[in-house]
């Protein structure tokens, strides 16, 4: 049968959760949520247009392109980079980003440390899914998965390998577990061969995963 929401695996998921199949009608999860929404609207607690506006904000406007602008500016403008490292909430607000789930931002930089070592930062929320929404949007499914939440603090190099990232043995790994309302943005290293690039072009190299720490910025030949 056709699944109600157009995803071919929705019904299979529903069967797995409910343990039986229905011959017709929406799958059990769809039905449960439709009932809930109808009730909340009828009670006057929610305005369906506001629900749609909330969803659309994150589907269309608030996502990792915002964070990429922040990183590209930090790469291009040393004074901005310093402001970002000193007070990320204020520096990010300069670009017009802030608010829900990014009220208290901290930027952490990959690369050389003052003592000549190298550091790589990785962000996780072992307790659930805390994530810097104003700059990265809603977290990807893998970020919220048990596999990531459990292992990021125990075996970050193993996680990085699963993302195709191999770091030199002497790179220190810092894992940030987002247990409070502070949200962390990783500033990846600027790729070589991008000298003189304008910010818009640099931003295309800054992937979401690079700002979580499970990726690196794209090399210049992969620029869109």
């Amino acid at each position: 049968m056709a699944s109600h929401d157009g995803h071919p695996d929705a019904h299979r998921d529903a069967q797995r959760h409910e343990g039986h199949a229905h011959a017709a009608g929406p799958d059990p999860m769809t039905e449960r949520v439709q009932k809930l929404e109808a009730l909340l609207v009828e009670k006057g607690y929610v305005d369906p247009a506001a629900v749609e506006a909330l969803i659309e904000a994150y589907e269309t406007r608030i996502g990792p392109r915002n964070g990429a602008q922040v990183v590209a500016k930090a790469w291009s403008d040393p004074a901005y980079r310093q402001r970002l490292l000193d007070d990320a909430t204020a520096a990010i607000a300069e670009l017009g980003f802030g608010g829900r789930q990014g009220e208290h931002m901290v930027a952490v930089e990959n690369g050389l440390t003052p003592d000549g070592g190298r550091v790589h930062n990785l962000v996780v929320c072992t307790l659930c899914s805390c994530y810097p929404w104003p700059v990265l949007g809603v977290p990807p499914t893998w970020y919220k998965s048990a596999a990531y939440r459990s292992r990021a603090v125990l075996d970050p190099r193993g996680i990085l390998a699963e993302f195709g990232v191999a770091l030199p043995d002497d790179t220190e790994i810092r894992v940030w577990d987002s247990t409070a309302e502070v949200r962390y943005l990783v500033v990846p290293e600027r790729p070589a061969g991008t000298e003189g690039w304008p910010e818009e072009r640099l931003a295309a190299l800054v992937t979401r995963d690079a700002m979580i720490g499970t990726g690196l910025a794209l090399p210049p030949e992969q620029a869109a």
């Binding site: 157009g6 995803h7 769809t30 439709q34 607690y45 629900v51 909330l54």
Partner: peptide
């Protein structure tokens, strides 16, 4: 992944 997840997200925030 599913339409109902969109609504749960929006309803929770609302």
């Amino acid at each position: 992944k599913h339409a109902w997840e969109r609504r749960v997200f929006g309803l929770t925030l609302a």
